[in-house]
Amino acid sequence: MTDQELKQKSIIYRKKILTYIKQANAGHTGGSLSCVDILNVLYNRILNVTPENFYDLKRDHYIQSKGHSVEALYVVLADKGFFPESDLETLCQHGSRYVGHPTRKVKGIEHNTGALGHGLSYGVGVALAGKMDNKVFVLLGDGELAEGSNWEALLTASHYQLDNLCAIVDLNRLQITDWTRNVCCTDPLDEKFKAFGWSVQHVDGHDVKALTKVLSSVPFEKGKPSMIIANTVKGKGVSFIENNYKWHHHVPTDEEYKKAMKELNQALQKLNNEKENN
């Protein structure tokens, strides 16, 4: 898959995220739009995970610790053929297996998350069990880093030199209340992770080319777990959703939905024009 095709997918995923959130009248809009490029690159270029090998433990593992951004994950998994996309029309409806946080009832999801600060310890366990066979990726939110359990897991990962483990922080600098620095400042993150024994790299979390490069180079150092600090924009891709904490779980109104689709369609058009000009 070319970079151009990946970029196209990112926009299509964003349209679908908004569409299913709108249909369900529920969901985490800002966070799903902020991490979807990371998921795009992981599932389309990095992870050795398919519907066929999902029950083989030697495959790669992906754990979404920031479980609230589940709409991004559902949309990407549907695209990868884990389940029919039409299933997502039942999102959050009575009796649906598509809950508002990741659940193992859905094929492609291996751990139930939603309470924050749980994914990394689980990832450490998987990485310990399968050392050297496969890679384990855990996506963390930046607000979630205030949970102390993350820091317990960071210690264990470096203690056991888990270089098959890679954590990615979706650093959109926002959380439900406000800017993260105003709620519980975690800066400087890179120095903290380094002090905890991790090998750290920064990346633009919306640049599929840069994400591919950094995710392919895991482990960054032999004998150390890898940490990617992905600089992102919460609500990325839709001008009026970007960088606004109110969109943490705001559902677009009819008007907002139309406007967002228009912006995303224009972005898609622009991308296609660029392709033709090249």
């Binding site: 433990l57 751990h111 749980h118 310890s121 366990g125 998987v126 310990l128 069990a129």
Partner: peptide
């Protein structure tokens, strides 16, 4: 949490 991951991995 680590125990859960280990169990999931067999």
């Amino acid at each position: 949490g680590v125990a859960a991951g280990l169990a999931a991995a067999g």
